[in-house]
């Protein structure tokens, strides 16, 4: 039997007895970032495919929430900083090796872009809206003329934002649970799924609802495949990753993960959507809320569990 103890008494704030440097702020931000990425991705995608009137909730209405989600997410990030007044230091350097650095720059592009995208639709959706100043009208006309370019930039940045929320964690090899490249695609797909769920819930067009319900079914299937893949990877890896996987396969995170994330957030809404596509009536907010709940729980559980996973020496 081997026992390792710190005998000089170490109780560093947020580090001991197990790491807990990141509380609710980071998973909330990761969720909101992923959700905004999903919303903006579908808005740009269906605009580029020329379906802005067919799927007008996805292209015009729902993106109006994205800037708010991003700003709340950024607010949570700010609250998480310990040296808050120096936050601007993020924007005095570009460090390509640091996911947090290029993530900060990505947000610097995506947040204004989401605002601009929504602003170009405001007068179409609210005809009484008046920008008051002539130069804003001119700017609006210019942006509407170049919406295609905006959409291309937005779709690329939405994917970067969605993947970044996962890569932020997977870049830490000190935390074996996070140190898997599956986390990038998994968080991207989960964000897209939450975005599709949001559109499905808010859309008043039955055809659009059915379309996004089908999209969600596909995304849930991909998510389940990625999760299975992730655990197969852990099981086949080194001892520290076997231990990390064991936290979810019989360990302390087993019930919350498989019940809240996999069953309530994926299998149950998939079943309800399938049931609806078969012709039965299911209020679309039930699977929608479940998917979003699962998406939130995925971030919280992965962020908390990751901090408890470590190399033992």
């Amino acid at each position: 039997m081997k026992e390792e103890l710190i005998i000089s008494g170490r109780m560093n704030y947020k580090v001991d007895p197990t790491l807990h440097i990141w509380g609710w702020e980071i998973p909330l931000y990761l969720f909101l970032g992923g959700l905004a990425a999903g919303i903006l991705f579908f808005a740009a995608l269906y605009y580029l495919r020329g379906k802005e009137n067919q799927y007008q909730f996805a292209v015009k209405w729902v993106p109006m929430f994205a800037p708010f989600f991003l700003i709340i997410g950024l607010g949570a990030l700010f609250l998480d900083l310990h040296h808050k007044l120096y936050f601007w230091r993020l924007y005095t350097s570009i460090k390509l090796q640091s996911p947090m650095s290029w993530g900060a720059w990505t947000l610097m592009v995506v947040t204004p872009l989401s605002l601009v995208w929504s602003a170009t639709y405001v007068r179409e959706l609210y005809p009484k809206w008046d920008w008051k100043l002539k130069w804003i009208f001119d700017l609006e006309a210019f942006l509407i003329k170049n919406r295609r370019i905006l959409a291309w930039i937005m779709i690329v940045y939405a994917v970067i934002l969605g993947i970044y929320t996962g890569i932020l964690l997977s870049a830490f090899n000190a935390r074996p649970l996070w140190n898997t490249s599956i986390l990038g695609p998994l968080f991207l797909v989960s964000g897209l799924s939450a975005g599709a769920a949001m559109i499905m819930m808010l859309s008043k067009n039955p055809l659009e609802r059915i379309k996004f319900s089908q999209i969600d079914l596909l995304l849930i299937a991909i998510e389940l495949a990625l999760i299975i893949h992730m655990f197969m990877g852990f099981r086949a890896s080194t001892q520290v990753q076997i231990d990390a996987g064991a936290m979810f396969l019989g360990g302390p995170y087993t019930l919350p993960f498989w019940i809240f994330v996999v069953f309530m957030g994926m299998i149950l809404p998939a079943f309800l959507e399938f049931w609806e596509l078969k012709g039965n009536h299911v209020p679309s907010y039930i699977p929608g809320v479940l998917i979003i709940f699962g998406s939130v729980m995925l971030r919280f559980i992965i962020v908390y569990a990751g901090q408890a996973s470590r190399y033992l020496y």
Binding site: N12, K14, L19, L81, H82, F87, R310
Partner: peptide, 21 residues
């Protein structure tokens, strides 16, 4: 900025946030 990324990245848990931030 006290973001904690380095604290999470250290396999030795050698870093901590100072009370000054």
């Amino acid at each position: 900025i006290g973001c904690g990324a380095c604290i999470a990245s250290c396999p030795y848990d050698a870093r901590y946030p100072h009370p000054d931030g």
